[in-house]
Structures are given as structure tokens and as C-alpha cells.
């Protein structure tokens, strides 16, 4: 009994130590990640003191992405895109990439349609937020949650 207990203790200790080493080295070499709070700050830098309403913006990303290195992103906004009422800009933010800003698009009445597509990198399973600025100065946002199975390569060159 005593021997088995000590063996169990040894395994527990060894396991904990290994886990500790693993976590420690991950923390040491892991790249800096933005946090949801940093994303909110980045959004604040763009919108200033204006209120960000929810709605109007449709952000489309695949709910499950196998490869975080190139995730298709499509964003569209309900807008007539006239001289009097159009989308001025659309900004895309990520929650857990090394930096929260992903891309900004500038549109105008000549766009005809407020619809843009690109491909982004995602370092982790996270929420992506698109904030649009309308010609009347109001801001609207839409969000999408993406599960990433293979994160965008951050370590090896």
C-alpha cells in the first residue's frame, strides 16, 4: 500500500511538474495576445465617445475554420448608399489576435452597395467584430464567433 501511494505521489508530482514546465515555456515563447479589453480600447480609438449601436452590420465568417491563416470574411451593411445616407467606413477588430485591429475599409456613395470581402488570419478561437460608420456619424456593429482548429502560424519561420 505504501509503495503504491508513493508511486502515485511521484506520478502526480511529475505530471504537475511537466505541466508547469510546459505552461511556463509556453508563456515565455508565446506571442503577446490582445485581450477583449484591448479590443474595446481599439474600438474606442476609432469611434471616440460615440455610442456603438448593435445591428445593421452583417459579418459573415465560417463558424468553424480549419485553417486560421486564411479565413474568408464578408461584411455588409444595410444602407441605401446614397449621397445623403451611406457607409463611410467599416472597421474589423479581433479579440485574441496579437493586435486587435484587422482591417479598415473606406466606402462612399459611389460604392453602390456596402458589401466587402477579404481573407483574415485568426490566432485563436474568438469573436470578430465589425464596426461601421454611417454618413450621419452614427456607429453600428455586428459580430461573429469563429472556432479555429489550426491557429494562424505565429511561432516558426
Amino acid at each position: 500500500m505504501e509503495r503504491r501511494a508513493s508511486r502515485r505521489e511521484f506520478l502526480l508530482t511529475a505530471g504537475a511538474a511537466a505541466a508547469g514546465v510546459g505552461l511556463g515555456s509556453l508563456a515565455a515563447v508565446g506571442p503577446a495576445r490582445a485581450t477583449p479589453a484591448e479590443m474595446q480600447e481599439a474600438i474606442r480609438r476609432v469611434v471616440g465617445s460615440a455610442r456603438v449601436n448593435t445591428g445593421k452590420v452583417k459579418l459573415e465568417l465560417p463558424p468553424l475554420s480549419e485553417n486560421g491563416n486564411a479565413v474568408p470574411l464578408a461584411v455588409s451593411v444595410e444602407s441605401p448608399m446614397t449621397e445623403a445616407d451611406h457607409v463611410r467606413a467599416i472597421h474589423v477588430f479581433t479579440e485574441k489576435n496579437p493586435q486587435p485591429d484587422a482591417v479598415s475599409f473606406h466606402l462612399g456613395p459611389r460604392s453602390g452597395r456596402a458589401s466587402v470581402a477579404t481573407r483574415i488570419r485568426l490566432a485563436d478561437t474568438q469573436t470578430v467584430i465589425a464596426v461601421c460608420e454611417l454618413s450621419d456619424g452614427s456607429f453600428w456593429s455586428g459580430r461573429a464567433d469563429v472556432v479555429v482548429t489550426l491557429a494562424a502560424c505565429l511561432e516558426d519561420g
Binding site: A70, T94, D101, V103, S111
Partner: peptide, 12 residues
């Protein structure tokens, strides 16, 4: 008619 500002999060 269109402009974009890119950050490292844009894919290759």
C-alpha cells in the same frame, strides 16, 4: 472609390 488600411491580421 475604395480604400483599405491593412494590419498583420490580413492573410498572405
Amino acid at each position: 472609390i475604395f480604400r483599405a488600411e491593412l494590419h498583420p491580421a490580413i492573410a498572405a
